[in-house]
Computed example of a mutant assay.
Amino acid sequence: MAAQSFEKTNFFWELQQQVQRFNEWLESVTARNQNQVPELSLEPWFLDLLWLVVRGIFWLILGLILIWLGRQIWQNWQKYYDSVPSLSNAGLTKAGANKLKVSVWIERSRKFYLEGNYQEAVRCLYMATIQRLNDRGIILDETSRTDGEYRQLIQNLPNREAYQILLNTHEQLCFANRVISLEIFERCQQAYQEIEKQ
């Protein structure tokens, strides 16, 4: 009979042997150290106190996160609110504001003028002008229309300069944060009176 060849070693068998040796070594180390570690016995009141502290820390962290999140939301909302001039100054959006009659806008302008709030007085004159154009069917008011678009649409109207004074002042008021003086208000009021005479 021919002599058969046998494997003397195998990679997987060697790996299994190494893993077994490591496990035996780890078991001997932990058994030795287990006798040296004192047994920890905690009283029930201590466990209750520890659990109370852990819960308190959890709720404190959660509360701080919620406060921080609320503050971030509030600050972003404030930035938005402050960036919309008609909301922050007049308390109205342009869409809701245009539903008012011209006479109401003029009355508001007078009220703001008497209070010394020339910016809002000019804004009301501007809104009265836009509403007057809408009421007469000359230029229908659309909330998406800009001052530049109104400027293009008034090119063929009589008293174009009076309209431009109000449009330019409103544009500077909203986008350049221009401070409106009594002089500027009076010029805008005179321009509106010229428009009203048509």
Score class of each variant (00 low, 15 high):
28 S>A: 11
33 N>A: 12
177 N>C: 00
166 L>Q: 00
106 I>D: 00
48 D>F: 13
9 T>L: 09
147 D>C: 12
48 D>C: 14
86 S>E: 09
161 E>D: 12
63 G>W: 01
133 L>M: 01
9 T>M: 05
12 F>T: 10
98 N>H: 05
62 L>H: 07
90 A>Y: 07
74 W>H: 08
68 W>N: 15
35 N>S: 13
97 A>I: 02
148 G>M: 09
51 W>A: 15
76 N>P: 04
24 E>A: 15
25 W>Y: 14
110 R>A: 05
108 R>M: 07
131 Q>N: 03
125 L>Y: 01
130 I>R: 07
64 L>E: 08
150 Y>W: 03
84 V>M: 00
72 Q>A: 12
30 T>C: 14
19 V>S: 14
10 N>P: 02
168 N>R: 10
14 E>F: 04
159 N>V: 10
92 L>F: 10
197 K>S: 13
166 L>G: 00
98 N>Y: 07
61 I>H: 02
195 I>L: 12
22 F>L: 15
15 L>A: 09
9 T>P: 04
19 V>A: 04
177 N>S: 07
27 E>H: 08
52 L>A: 14
150 Y>E: 03
113 Y>D: 10
9 T>C: 01
139 I>H: 02
126 Y>V: 05
117 N>Y: 02
112 F>A: 13
174 C>Y: 15
95 A>C: 01
129 T>N: 08
188 C>H: 04
152 Q>Y: 00
16 Q>I: 11
166 L>E: 00
170 H>V: 08
146 T>L: 04
8 K>F: 09
81 Y>M: 03
10 N>Y: 09
19 V>C: 12
66 L>S: 08
197 K>F: 08
117 N>K: 03
86 S>N: 02
106 I>T: 03
3 A>M: 10
86 S>R: 08
23 N>Y: 11
31 A>K: 15
135 D>M: 01
41 S>G: 12
51 W>T: 15
2 A>T: 12
143 T>P: 05
182 L>I: 05
182 L>H: 07
164 Q>L: 08
29 V>D: 06
176 A>V: 05
172 Q>A: 04
177 N>D: 10
27 E>I: 13
182 L>K: 14
143 T>E: 12
61 I>M: 10
47 L>C: 09
70 G>C: 07
187 R>T: 09
136 R>H: 03
81 Y>C: 04
41 S>K: 14
74 W>Y: 15
77 W>R: 06
54 V>M: 06
160 R>A: 08
163 Y>Q: 01
53 V>S: 10
150 Y>F: 06
190 Q>H: 15
171 E>S: 08
85 P>Y: 14
189 Q>N: 07
168 N>K: 09
31 A>R: 15
122 V>I: 01
20 Q>K: 14
32 R>L: 07
163 Y>E: 04
75 Q>T: 12
95 A>N: 09
125 L>W: 02
50 L>C: 10
57 I>T: 06
52 L>Y: 11
153 L>A: 06
3 A>T: 15
176 A>D: 11
196 E>P: 11
98 N>S: 11
42 L>A: 06
60 L>N: 07
162 A>P: 04
85 P>D: 05
167 L>Y: 02
183 E>V: 01
65 I>A: 02
170 H>P: 06
135 D>K: 06
162 A>G: 04
113 Y>P: 04
181 S>N: 03
17 Q>G: 11
198 Q>H: 11
26 L>N: 10
71 R>W: 08
181 S>G: 08
122 V>N: 02
196 E>N: 03
73 I>H: 06
131 Q>E: 02
187 R>S: 11
12 F>N: 07
